[in-house]
């Protein structure tokens, strides 16, 4: 098997083309493979775990392809980037469909209230939280900042589209947060793992910088 630099986990939910295109753009010399083969995931140097749609469906499809163990194992030992539902699935439980997650981290996934949410100008806030919001980098006892924030301004805008957000039990894993209207965790970091609620593959220069940081990251 040809050496796999980056495996993008494909479990049949949504469009992974944007993720792989963006990785190929920042790392033209790397072999990026979109795969649903657990062996390829085990052999890859790095793993990207994206996700779209509803979390219960994502978990079901992941299991249907026998990918659960491969993902959990990769999350523990190799450079790993979770995106959107790929962040949410790492937790124990989601309010979405009252479903169990992979339980890599303790904590829950909750829904934005939708009713009576207003911004600082008193305007009604919509759900899903869709568009470009500022992401603030938590220092969380880490100096210098995490490798994946290198070259990215604190408060840079990233593109979001989601109705649910993670609430980690251990706030020390929070590496970035946004406000809508309350503060919520939008990036987590632990050892070899980094996961974000926003879409770096759709976040123009800031997002491409983060993907480039991931490709070169040596945790």
């Amino acid at each position: 098997m040809k050496k796999i630099d980056i495996a993008v986990v494909d479990y049949g939910m949504g469009n992974l083309r944007s993720v792989s295109k963006a990785l190929e753009h920042v790392a033209p010399s790397k072999n990026v493979l979109v795969t649903s083969n657990p062996v390829a995931i085990a052999n890859a140097e790095r793993v990207v775990f994206p996700g779209q749609g509803a979390m219960p469906d994502c978990i079901r499809e992941l299991d249907a392809r026998g990918l659960r163990e491969a993902v959990i194992h990769a999350a523990k030992i190799k450079p790993f980037l979770g995106i959107c539902i790929g962040l949410q699935m790492l937790f124990e439980h989601s309010e979405e469909g009252d479903s169990a997650g992979l339980g890599v981290f303790k904590g829950n996934v909750k829904r934005f209230a939708a009713v009576d949410m207003h911004d600082a100008n008193g305007e009604k806030l919509k759900v899903p939280h869709m568009g470009w919001n500022q992401v603030y980098q938590s220092q969380h006892k880490q100096t210098p900042p995490h490798a994946l924030w290198q070259g990215i301004e604190d408060g840079a805008r990233f593109y979001y589209v989601h109705s649910y957000y993670v609430v980690p039990e251990d706030d020390d894993i929070t590496s970035g947060y946004s406000e809508y209207p309350s503060r919520f965790t939008s990036a987590i970091a632990k050892d070899n793992l980094f996961a974000v609620q926003f879409h770096p593959e759709k976040s123009a220069n800031a997002g491409l910088q983060m993907l480039s940081n991931f490709v070169n990251w040596l945790p």
């Binding site: 753009h25 589209v161 593959e201 976040s203």
Partner: peptide, 8 residues
Amino acid sequence: VASQVFIP
């Protein structure tokens, strides 16, 4: 476009 432009 999707291989050159990284916005939605």
